[in-house]
Each structure stands twice: as structure tokens, then as C-alpha cells.
């Protein structure tokens, strides 16, 4: 069944959760103000983001300190693993929603619009499209250009990360650090190419359902790659500080799982957004 320990670590009262709530509230209020063109909004948002950063540093700092102090017994480690698994599952469902929207738009909404000839004369359900009411013609991004290269980059980064993990398991710290550094470099390269692709693209998020689904899916994915890269950088710094041992490196594995998840999402994007 499960591991038991008389002393499952229950942390002492902590200020960070309430700081986090204040941060998110401030951020949300600021964002709502920005969206409604209230001048002070961006300041409020910056304040919220600042508090959030402080909270993240404080909270993760506390966790790292407790971890290094050996307070996390095996059972706590198992909790962290389960927690990460379910968190990634929730992320999967988040992307599933947007993929569902793409599927619905292409296979149900567009044929429905094409059927409504009395409203949209001459409209046919081809893809890509900006819909019957907008006149823009979409030139999609060529899947076999930058996107294919990015696929290669992200797959390679998965390989380098696994290589780093092997190094960690065998306590080859140099291989761990090198592997992590390579992964981060590939991640940043991916983001750079993605930004370049956005700059070159001949359409915007405002260009109908194609633009909307394209930027929403690739944008959220890109955001996740950025988050993943930041996490990898933290892991690299912690590796340099010698935090990880072959027997105790949950943080590394959690970030690795996350990175592979982002990788898989990209493969789906490559197929459903770029190729098909």
C-alpha cells in the first residue's frame, strides 16, 4: 500500500498563501482595469506581479529549505509526485479544451456556416478561413519551415533532459549540469524561433477563427515553454548548488515531467495546427 511515517511533515503556519491571494487579487483587479482602459491598471498589475514574485520566491524558498533540512520523508515525496501528476493532468485538460474548440470550429461550426447560404452567400467551409464576415485571406505558416525545425528542437531538448536525468541517477553531476544547460538553450531557441514566426506570420489573432485558434493554442504552449524554461533554470541553479542526489531529486523530476508534457503538446500542435 503506502509508505507510513509517524512524522508526516506538517509545515508551520505560513504567510505565503495569503500573500499569494493578495497577489492574484491585485493582478486580477489590475488586469480588469487595463482591459477597460483605466490608466492606473498597469501599475496595479505590476504591483500584483511583484507581490506574486515575492510569494513564489518565499514559498519555494521555504520548500527548498525544508527539503534540504531532510524534513520530507518518503511519504511526503510520494505526495509531491502525485501532486505533480494531477497538476499535469489538469494542464492536459486545459489544452484539451482548446483543441476541442479547434476541432469543433473546423468540423461543426464551419460546415454550419456554409449551410447558412442565405446569411453568408458563397461561403464554403475551407480551412484556413477567417470566416464568412471578414475579408482577410489567410496564408498559413508553412509547417515544414520553422515549425518542423521547432519540433526537432523540442524533441532534442527532451532527449538532452533525459540524458541529464541519467547523469543525475548515476550521480554524474557534470552530465546533469551540461544536459540541463543544453535543454535550457534549446528551450530558449524554440521560444526565439516562435517569436520570429509570430513576427513573420501574415495574420493576427484578430483574423477570424483561424487566427484565434492558432494564436491561442501556440501562444499558451509558448507560455508553458517559457515557464518550463524558467523552472529548468531554477533546477540548473539548484544543481550548481548541489541540491540533488541520486536518491532525492523530486524537483528535477517534476520539471522533467512538465517539460515532456509541453513536448507532447507541441507534437499535437504540430499535427493539428500546422500540418492539417
Amino acid at each position: 500500500m503506502q509508505a507510513h511515517n509517524n512524522a508526516y511533515y506538517v509545515p508551520p503556519p505560513s504567510i505565503w498563501p495569503i500573500v499569494g491571494s493578495v497577489a492574484l487579487l491585485t493582478l486580477a483587479v489590475g488586469f480588469a482595469l487595463v482591459l477597460n482602459k483605466v490608466a492606473v491598471g498597469s501599475l496595479v498589475m505590476a504591483l500584483g506581479a511583484g507581490i506574486l514574485l515575492i510569494m513564489l520566491f518565499g514559498w519555494f524558498g521555504a520548500v527548498i529549505k525544508e527539503s534540504l533540512a531532510g524534513k520530507y520523508a518518503r511519504q511526503v515525496d510520494t505526495s509531491f509526485r502525485w501532486g505533480m501528476v494531477w497538476f499535469i493532468f489538469s494542464e492536459v485538460m486545459f489544452f484539451a479544451g482548446f483543441f476541442g474548440a479547434l476541432f469543433y470550429a473546423r468540423n461543426l461550426a464551419l460546415p454550419g456556416l456554409a449551410d447558412a447560404q442565405s446569411l453568408w452567400p458563397g461561403f464554403s467551409a475551407a480551412w484556413p478561413t477567417t470566416g464568412p464576415g471578414l475579408k482577410t485571406v489567410i496564408t498559413p505558416v508553412n509547417a515544414w519551415g520553422i515549425p518542423a525545425l521547432n519540433t526537432l528542437i523540442l524533441l532534442s531538448s527532451g532527449a538532452t533532459l533525459t540524458w541529464a536525468h541519467w547523469g543525475l541517477q548515476k550521480d554524474r553531476q557534470r552530465q546533469l549540469k551540461l544536459g540541463l544547460a543544453l535543454t535550457i538553450a534549446l528551450g530558449i531557441l524554440f521560444i526565439g524561433l516562435q517569436i520570429h514566426e509570430y513576427g513573420e506570420a501574415a495574420f493576427t489573432i484578430r483574423d477570424g477563427i483561424y487566427g484565434a485558434t492558432f494564436y491561442m493554442l501556440t501562444g499558451f504552449h509558448g507560455f508553458h515553454v517559457m515557464m518550463g524554461s524558467v523552472m529548468l533554470i531554477v533546477i540548473l541553479l539548484r544543481s550548481l548548488a548541489g541540491h540533488f542526489t541520486p536518491g532525492r531529486h523530486f524537483a528535477f523530476e517534476a520539471v522533467a515531467w512538465y517539460w515532456h508534457f509541453v513536448d507532447v503538446i507541441w507534437l499535437l500542435l504540430f499535427i493539428f495546427v500546422y500540418c492539417l
Binding site: 464576415g133 483574423d207 484565434a212 491561442m216
Partner: peptide, 8 residues
């Protein structure tokens, strides 16, 4: 965006 707007 035009997720819920027929014209898009």
C-alpha cells in the same frame, strides 16, 4: 478573437 462570433 472570433471564437464565438459567426462572422469570423
Amino acid at each position: 478573437t472570433h471564437f464565438f462570433d459567426a462572422s469570423g
